[in-house]
Design a protein around this nucleic acid. Structure first.
Length: 552
RNA sequence: GCCCCGGUAGCUCAGUUGGAUAGAGCAUCUGCCUUCUAAGCAGAGGGUCACAGGUUCGAAUCCUGUCCGGGGUACCA
C-alpha cells in the first residue's frame, strides 16, 4: 500500500469552511457565521452547510438561489475528497465525501490507537473535581451514587482531554450533624451496657450505629464516660472506611480528602471573616453573624455563624473554595446535588467580593434520583435509616450496570432508578449491548487468529465498500470531535448515547458483513475496521469506568 | 409568593449551535441461528414535542405567560 496523505475530519471541515468563505468573497456576499455539520439524512450527502439560509435576509433573495450560486463556485474547485455538491430545499448545500477519504481514515484511527479521540485541550493544565462530599454520618446511598459516578466520569473526561486531574472529597466534620452522630453512638453504647441513656432528638437511627457502639465496647471497654471523644472519632473512622470501600468497589478513588475542621485549625476561617469584615460585609444581628449578601446582588443576607456559636456550612465552604483557588488549578469543578443549587452563588459572590478569581470554577448541578420499588417511590433519609445503600446495589447488579445507569441520563433530568428493573432484568440493561459489541469483536479477532488470519496492519482500505462499513467508519471518525464536546459540556451522558449508536452500527455491520472469510485480502481490511471499532468502544467505556469484556 | 430543574411514543429517555421527514430502548406484534457470540439483526404499530402566544426564512430547541412534577427559599448539610 502506498503511503497516502491522511486527512482528518476536522481538517476537511476547515478546508470546506475556507472554501465557502472564499466563495462568499468572490460573490461579494457578506461574511456571516455559518455551520458545517453532518447531514441527518444520507440523501443529503455527508456534510451540509446552512450558509445560504443565513444570508437570505441580508441579500433579500430566495435561499435556494443563493445556495446555487455558492455551490457553482465551489464546484469549480472541488477537493479530491469531495465527490459531489448538491443543493436541496430550503437552501442547504450538501457535500458528499469520497469513499477514499473514509477508507484512509481507518489507518488514522489505527495509528492513534488508544489515544484516538484524545484531545490536547488540557495539556499542561490542572483540574480539580470535587464530588461525593457526603458527610460521614452513614453509608452511601443510591442517591449518592449518581454524584459519585457522575463526578468520576467528569474527571475522566477531563483526563481524556489531557488535564492533570485531582479527584477531591470535601466533608464537614465540625458541625452539628457530626455532633449528633457522636451522641447517637454514645446513646447506643450506654444502651448496650444496660445503663441509662438519652437518645438525641434527630439522632441517627440506623443499625450501623449499634454496630459501631458494639465495636467501641470491644476496643475500648465498658468504662467510657459521657462526652468521651472516642465516640465521635470512632464513628467517623468506621463510616469513612465504609464509604471509601463502597467507592472503590465502583472503581472510584479520590486523590485528596479535605475537611472543614482543618480550615478552623489553620486559621483560614478567621482570615476569611476578617477579610470580609474589612470589606464591611459582615455584621452582627440577633446574636448571629451575618454575611451581607444583599450587598452582593442577592435577595437576602445569610447567617454565617449561628447564635449558638456554630457556623453554618457557608462559612467553611467559602474558606474551602478560597483554598482551592489558591491551589492554582486551571479548572475547578464542583458537583452538587439540586439541593445545593441555591447556596453556591453565595460562596462565589463572597470570593468575588474579595477579588478571589472565580471564573474558572464550573458548578455542575445534578437532579435527584428517585428510587422505585414495586413501582412506588422510596423516600430516603440517612437519619431515619430508610435507604438503600450503594454497596448493596453494587453487589446486586455489579459495577458496570450501576455506573451506566447513573450516567445514561442527562444530569439536569431527574433519574428514576427502578430497583426491580436493575435487579431482575439486568440482562436487558443497555450497558450489555455495548459490552456485547466489544466481546463480539474480540471473538471475531480470536476466531480469525485460529484460522491463521492475524491482523497484520497490511490491508487494502479500498476493499471497504459496503454501506454498513461506511456508516461505521463515519461514526468512528466523529469521536475526536465528540471528545471536545464532552469537555465543553462535561456531560457523560453524551458519551453513553454515542457509544450506543456505535454499538448499533457495529451490530448492523456484523449482520451484513462477514469478517473472517476465504478472501484473505478482504478479511484483513475488515479486521482493520473492526479493530478500529474495538478501539473506540474501549476508549469510550474506559472513560465511563465500565469494563470491556472479551467474552460474554 | 419568589428562584432553579424538568414535561418529547403505553413506560424510561435521546435530540449538538435554532435546520430538512422528531429518534432509541423497554413493552406489543411479524420474520431471521447447518454460516465469526441470537445479550444480536430485519420489519410493523405507536406523537397535539404539556398548553397558549411571540421572535425567525425555519422552533422540541430561543422569549413571555399558564398548567403539572421535583428541588430550594432554615441560625439543616
Amino acid at each position: 500500500m502506498r503511503p497516502q496523505f491522511l486527512l482528518k475530519m476536522k481538517h476537511l471541515k476547515q478546508q470546506l469552511n475556507d472554501g465557502v468563505r472564499d466563495a462568499l468573497k468572490t460573490l461579494s456576499f457578506p461574511d456571516k457565521p455559518f455551520t458545517i455539520s453532518p447531514s441527518k439524512n444520507p440523501d443529503f450527502g455527508d456534510l451540509s452547510t446552512n450558509v445560504a439560509l443565513i444570508l437570505t435576509k441580508d441579500l433579500k433573495r430566495a435561499p435556494i438561489q443563493i445556495a446555487e450560486e455558492i455551490s457553482g463556485i465551489l464546484n469549480q474547485q472541488l477537493s479530491k475528497h469531495i465527490d459531489s455538491i448538491s443543493v436541496t430545499p430550503p437552501g442547504f448545500i450538501n457535500f458528499t465525501l469520497s469513499p477514499s477519504f473514509y477508507q484512509s481514515n481507518i489507518q488514522n484511527i489505527l495509528n492513534a490507537g488508544e489515544d484516538f479521540g484524545r484531545s490536547s485541550i488540557g495539556k499542561g493544565k490542572t483540574a480539580n473535581v470535587e464530588f461525593v462530599s457526603a458527610n460521614p454520618t452513614g453509608p452511601l446511598t443510591v442517591g449518592h451514587g449518581r454524584q459519585a459516578v457522575l463526578g468520576d466520569s467528569v474527571a475522566s473526561i477531563l483526563e481524556w482531554n489531557s488535564f492533570n486531574v485531582t479527584r477531591e472529597y470535601y466533608y464537614n466534620d465540625a458541625g452539628r450533624q457530626m455532633r449528633i452522630l457522636g451522641q447517637s453512638v454514645e446513646a447506643r453504647y450506654f444502651e448496650a451496657l444496660g445503663k441509662e441513656f438519652e437518645f438525641p432528638e434527630d439522632g441517627y437511627q440506623g443499625d450501623y450505629i449499634i454496630d459501631i457502639a458494639q465495636s467501641i465496647i470491644k476496643n475500648y471497654g465498658k468504662g467510657l464516660n459521657s462526652g468521651d471523644k472516642r465516640f465521635r472519632e470512632t464513628v467517623e473512622i468506621v463510616i469513612f472506611s465504609d464509604i471509601k470501600n463502597t467507592l472503590s468497589e465502583l472503581g472510584i478513588i479520590h486523590d485528596q480528602f479535605s475537611n472543614e475542621k482543618s480550615f478552623y485549625d489553620n486559621g483560614a476561617i478567621d482570615q476569611l471573616l476578617s477579610d470580609l469584615k474589612a470589606k464591611e460585609l459582615i455584621y452582627e444581628s440577633d446574636g448571629a453573624t451575618w454575611l451581607k449578601t444583599s450587598a452582593l446582588g442577592k435577595d437576602q443576607d445569610r447567617v454565617y455563624i449561628k447564635s449558638s456559636g456554630e457556623p453554618t456550612y457557608r462559612l467553611p465552604d467559602t474558606a474551602y473554595h478560597r483554598n482551592k483557588v489558591e491551589r492554582n488549578f486551571d479548572e475547578i469543578i464542583d458537583i452538587f446535588g439540586a439541593d445545593h443549587a441555591d447556596t453556591y452563588p453565595d460562596v462565589l459572590a463572597a470570593l468575588d467580593a474579595l477579588d478571589v478569581p472565580v471564573d474558572h470554577i464550573r458548578v455542575l448541578i445534578h437532579q435527584f434520583v428517585t428510587l422505585l420499588r414495586d413501582g412506588e417511590k422510596v423516600k430516603m433519609s440517612t437519619r431515619k435509616a430508610n435507604f438503600v445503600t450503594l454497596e448493596d446495589l453494587v453487589k446486586e447488579v455489579g459495577k458496570d450496570v450501576v455506573r451506566y445507569f447513573f450516567i445514561m441520563r442527562n444530569m439536569s433530568s431527574h433519574l428514576d432508578f427502578d430497583l426491580d428493573l436493575a435487579a431482575d432484568q439486568s440482562d436487558k440493561n443497555p450497558v450489555f449491548y455495548l459490552q456485547y459489541a466489544h466481546a463480539r469483536i474480540a471473538n471475531i479477532i480470536k476466531h480469525g487468529e485460529s484460522l491463521g488470519h492475524s491482523f497484520s496492519q497490511e490491508f487494502d482500505p479500498t476493499l471497504i465498500s459496503e454501506k454498513e462499513e461506511f456508516t461505521l467508519i463515519k461514526h468512528l471518525m466523529r469521536f475526536p470531535e465528540l471528545s471536545e464536546q464532552l469537555y465543553e459540556s462535561l456531560e457523560p451522558q453524551m458519551l453513553a448515547t454515542y457509544l450506543q449508536e456505535l454499538a448499533a452500527h457495529f451490530h448492523k455491520f456484523y449482520g451484513k458483513c462477514k469478517v473472517i472469510t476465504d478472501d484473505s485480502a478482504l478479511t484483513q481490511s475488515r479486521l482493520a475496521l473492526i479493530t478500529c471499532a474495538k478501539l473506540v468502544l474501549s476508549n469510550g467505556l474506559h472513560i465511563l469506568g465500565i469494563s470491556t469484556p472479551d467474552r460474554m
